[in-house]
Structures are given as structure tokens and as C-alpha cells.
Design a protein around this nucleic acid. Sequence first.
DNA 1: CGGGTTTATTACCTTGCGGTTTTATACCGG
DNA 2: CCGGTATAAAACCGCAAGGTAATAAACCCG
Lengths: 116, 116
Amino acid sequence: MDSDVLDRTFAALADPTRRAILARLAQGEATVTELAAPFAISQPAISKHLKVLERAGLVVRGRDAQRRPSRLDVAPIRLAVDWLEEFRSASEERFQRLDAVLADLRAERDGKSDDH
Amino acid sequence: MDSDVLDRTFAALADPTRRAILARLAQGEATVTELAAPFAISQPAISKHLKVLERAGLVVRGRDAQRRPSRLDVAPIRLAVDWLEEFRSASEERFQRLDAVLADLRAERDGKSDDH
DNA sequence: CGGGTTTATTACCTTGCGGTTTTATACCGG
DNA sequence: CCGGTATAAAACCGCAAGGTAATAAACCCG
């Protein structure tokens, strides 16, 4: 299912620490300790967050000796935005149809005949 | 904090049942039983999902006798899209800077022929 | 009033999340 | 080889999510 990707992506985004990590990674690669520095939580907690981001495909990890630098992959973000945009346009389309109906009613009331 | 809104919005979107409910509501108001019909889960489960969507501000509920029709509010969606777009543009901006650096390096190499 | 319909509430279960501390692993440099 | 550094893994905790079944509450209609 493609739905699982959205599940994991939205779930990954639903945490402020993880969003901050992503924002930091938007500036470029970073190691775990670099990522952990701004936060008041422990290093294993950050590693867990990274694993969540990795499972969502938002983060890819490399290897540089002891370090495991993380870098971004925005592909899942694109999928999420696509879903949101399609959803929003679907709901707006509905309002356009509603507007059309209201316009028809107005036209009929004002005596103008057959237009649809 | 404005972050809580994002937390709740992304968390609400991280469930396929809730995304389906939202897609259904994009077509117009619906009652709980109407929303529950397509799913194999019980009515209280749907009511719980609706409460999650309501807490995220994505759904507003009315009253029509026994019925509690749900309708959409896309405002939190807009916030989520805003965050995603800003994030994506931030990461892309970084790649532009990287491109600029690489171009500089190339220019220097081609110009001064002063390699090491 | 009383029965039917719609929805919410309650109590409960299981699973997973976000955090901790502690311990193990892997690697570098002197 | 040894000490320091960076990261992962394990075991545990509290708590909330997502589900169930059963019951209550609110409302219409005959």
C-alpha cells in the first residue's frame, strides 16, 4: 500500500522534536550528537527519533568512521503535499459546485431561463 | 504554541481511516453512521476518530436532532502545507547554495589553474 | 407515553510511543 | 593496545492510541 508511506510520513511529522531535526537537516548533514545538542533529551531518544524518520524515508544515514551522519530525503514530503493539495482542491471544487447551484437558484429567481 | 496545532494536525492525518473520513467530508457534510458505513469497524471507533479530527480543528460538528453532522475546516491543512512548503524550500535553497559553491570551485579551477 | 434511531460514554484490552538508564559495539588516535 | 568518542541496543516505565462491547442519553414519531 502507498497509504503506509503516508501513515509513516505524517506520523513522523507529528512530533516537534522530529520536525526540528528535519529543519536542522535542511541546512545540511549532521551527526547524532550534533542533532541531539539543542535538545534536553538523551542521545538514545534522538536515535529513536532518527529511526522513525528513517522508516518514513525522510532521512538517509551514511557512515563516516564512528559517525552516522543523517541527510534528508524530501520524496515523502512531496507525497504528503500531493495528498494535501488533492484533498484541498477536492473540497474547494465542492464549494465551486455549491456556488454554481446558488447561482442557478439566483438566476431562476430573477426570471432568467434555461442555463445549466 | 503554534506547534501543538501542527502536532495534532499531522497526528490526525497519520491514520488511513481518518484520511478516508476527511476525503468523504470533502464531498459534503455527513453523519456518523454515514461515515461509519464504508468501514469494518464499530461506530464508537468512528466517533473516536471524529473526536481526534475535531481536536485538530479539521472537523466541526453541528446538530440536527439526534444527528451530529460533521463538516470540514481546511484551515489546519493550510498550516500543515505552509510548514511543508517552507521546509522544502529551505532544503532546496541549501542545494542552490551548494550549487553556487561548486560553481565557484569550478570557476577557480578553470581560471587560475592553481590546484593542489 | 413508548419504541426506534442516532450518537456518546464507559470500561476494558492490547499495542506502540517517547522517554529513561545502562550496557555493548565500533572506531579513532597516541 | 588502550582510552576516549560516537552510536546502537536492551530493558524498563508511564501513558495514550485504536479497538471492542455494553450501556446511556437524546431525540423523533406513531
